[in-house]
Design a protein around this nucleic acid. Sequence first.
DNA 1: AACACCGTTGCACCTAATGCAACTATACGG
DNA 2: CCGTATAGTTGCATTAGGTGCAACGGTGTT
Lengths: 252, 252
Amino acid sequence: MTGDKASHGIQRAVEILEFVCVQPRSQSEVAVHFDIHRSTAMRTLDSLVETGLSRKHADGRYGAGYRLAGLAQLALEQFDLAHVARPFLEELAGECQHTIHLAALDGRSIVYADKIDQPGMVRLYSQIGQAVTLHTAGVSKAILAYQPPSIVAEVLSGADFVRKTSNTITSLEAFTAQLETVREQGFAIDDAEFEDFINCVAMPIRDFTGEVMAAVSITALKARAGLDDLRMLLPRLTEITAAISKELGWRP
Amino acid sequence: MTGDKASHGIQRAVEILEFVCVQPRSQSEVAVHFDIHRSTAMRTLDSLVETGLSRKHADGRYGAGYRLAGLAQLALEQFDLAHVARPFLEELAGECQHTIHLAALDGRSIVYADKIDQPGMVRLYSQIGQAVTLHTAGVSKAILAYQPPSIVAEVLSGADFVRKTSNTITSLEAFTAQLETVREQGFAIDDAEFEDFINCVAMPIRDFTGEVMAAVSITALKARAGLDDLRMLLPRLTEITAAISKELGWRP
DNA sequence: AACACCGTTGCACCTAATGCAACTATACGG
DNA sequence: CCGTATAGTTGCATTAGGTGCAACGGTGTT
């Protein structure tokens, strides 16, 4: 295989696993979705079942398996960030009744590390483990604003600056200017840049070295809470992100 | 590949993923542990990193990745049993201050579906997603006691009845007699059968059809709570397992 | 400086993953 | 009940890719 590409088999298996974890699926649905032969879908799913990552329900559809839950529990014990942050995020979510995101710089990308949804709300697009939309997400700006230019350049080499709404920042220059604004005001926003009716405010989290490596955001439907409403939550968000940072060893 | 064996690549990848999730490891450690070439270990780990299931730490060791956490969150939304049971298990754990296990019949094996540890205790051997030790585990007996003989025979074909302690049941006949005792008394025990200083009591969980498909156990170090102490918790365990069963649709 | 070990890369070989054809099973409509 | 369509399964041949090897560079230790 090529030196810079994931094993084809592993890549395929992980994508199929995620597909059936979102919602249980039959092997035919998997075959159609991934444009592979029914026998290939069957064998890959059977492999996932045999490893325990997937389970075959009584109706023949495949879903998540218990070993996946076990792996997750092991994994969570390694995520100091998510572990430490979770109680604070739940506290914040309880108070403000909005969706809370935690994102982290992960190599040369930024990914969602945790997420507190609100019951009854439309489920937002974000998914733990998936990369954020670099040029629109508040957490992205809150992290990149405090990175060295070399890191910013490297991470943004993966940004396409595609227009999503009329508010979307579509150039590197404008985005860099926005990072300067974030540094000045101490927080980042997403003002309907990804989706017309969703906005958020975000603030950085520092680790024990004082470096910014994560951020927390409060996200809401504009109809429910506009930016002005969210700005009023900034003092509390400041406290929460400082508390998480201190728990991670940061000394202001 | 053979029709009844997991894809070699997927099997290997999952085992390596689990190995580094238990504790972050270097590629050399992975190579030695699995008796594979350093370049094979490197490529498999890089594949896991590229899919997001694993992460490469700054010190070069590999650990759990954020996408694994995302998959787990998706998975948990599918586990009615674990979802429904979790609050009850936490309640029980809070009251009795012992380790609580939830195990489920999964195909033709019985696996740990959830587990509530106690802070400060020696971490017990059990791991979510892993199969229970069929001939010693209380949850195994609590489930098998209520299965049809054909299911019992099929599941037990995977039991080796290896002696672990002087209390271990080492024959199919003795084990079958024990299942009869479980039916009579309504609960199962592990009386230092797996490990000399650990005992437990277990009771079955029924689904909406009334069938037993899971069990809950209270496990403790003998030094901390012997079987007599655990028996005193049976009324409460009865209530808890009945409550979980009712939540799953069981009507007594 | 020498040595040991680890991480990485290109390459050849061998294994296994894949699609195909053919089969069985199931569900549905007439 | 029968015919049809779709889904699931299996054996096999082919092709793709996974693997170990040798060689290299980097790092840490003596």
